[in-house]
Nucleic acid binder design. Structure first.
Lengths: 188, 188
DNA sequence: GGCGTCATGTAAAAGGTTACATGATTCC
DNA sequence: GGAATCATGTAACCTTTTACATGACGCC
């Protein structure tokens, strides 16, 4: 039930609307947890019932009224006790690896094309990470404690992206070799 | 709906029982897709209804009867058409990163402890990968096409594990610095 | 006129987890 | 005597995704 805890983290130092939390999931937190606005609105309502949050409604002219959620004492306690407990073991679910596992059933050209597309995504992501680092983390001495921890998560993104790119180069090389073999079959 | 396709991959070159497929998920395929026997039995039944599989029951002495599932023509076609379509973008869901993101709310000792535990898991996994490589992939010349592709997935595991360990060392160093600072606060 | 942003939601379906259940056999 | 292996399943619950829905405002 980590969505609940992601929301508590979001609200931990400032109140926000469901809409803002959803946006946060598409940006910062989105690099390691994801959700949709539908799920978030549901969860926020449940969390009010469980008294982890309170909210006040603010009417606006020309826009629908918004609900601003604030974490309660009990919410902070719930977050802290979650932080103390070990997380459950990370499980990979990677359909691309499944595909490669059965790559012999597919034309290498097709697989190559897909890997190259993914490689472009990975490169874009890497560039984005670099920009974030430059913009927010260039002066390492002036970072707040909170920012120092966030920087560690950015480092994770960068290192993982590097590793993925390294691996994908091996895959591309392999597939290009296969494709060449098919067009110039080895002579006996 | 990738469980379905994982099952098709499992049955693609040999028939198997639900029990065997479940075991396969705990071993080979388990490195990038996971499931439980409950879910697999359900899915197998649905796939028979969809005519992707057929099965025959084999009674055994002293053991419950087993159902041996075989992929159909239509199942092979379904698998092939899935392989042709790009997979949907991989999304990370990593609760540990969430925790680090809000690491400032937790004693660094606690976080350190958890990272060290995870590091041990990662090292064990790495060792297991190395063993698999030695046992099955040491003679690169004699690998079947299928094995060559499986080797690529193993390389992914190794590279990702290396990257994760590299990152975790940065985190450990950071946390140890924090812990030292607390016991010997800097003088002004 | 259309698209993007702000701001909320309902409802159904699909996918995944957890608890419970059975029962023989083999190995320590 | 107890644990692990073989082999299957039901049921409840929780989580996630997808489809549908509304409506004003500002920008190009």
């Amino acid at each position: 039930m980590s969505l609940r805890h992601a929301v508590l983290i979001a609200l931990q130092n400032e109140e926000a609307t469901g809409y803002e939390i959803a946006k946060w999931f598409d940006q910062g937190m989105g690099y390691f947890w994801s959700s949709t606005h539908q799920q978030i609105y549901q969860e926020l309502r449940k969390m009010v019932v469980s008294e982890l949050l309170t909210f006040r409604e603010v009417s606006q002219s020309g826009k629908p009224a918004k609900k601003i959620y604030t974490i309660t004492e009990s919410g902070i306690n719930e977050l802290k006790s979650w932080l103390e407990k070990p997380v459950k073991q990370y499980v990979v679910k990677d359909a691309l690896l499944m595909k490669i596992y059965s790559g012999h059933l597919l034309a290498p050209e097709k697989l190559l094309q897909e890997i190259l597309t993914q490689q472009n995504h990975a490169r874009e992501l890497h560039t984005k990470y670099d920009e974030i680092e430059k913009k927010w983390f260039s002066e390492k001495e002036n970072l707040s404690l909170q920012q120092q921890y966030i920087f560690l998560t950015l480092r994770n993104g960068i290192i993982q992206a590097d590793a993925w790119l390294k691996w994908s180069h091996e895959v591309v090389e392999f597939l290009e070799g296969k494709i060449e073999q098919t067009s110039n079959p080895p002579k006996h």
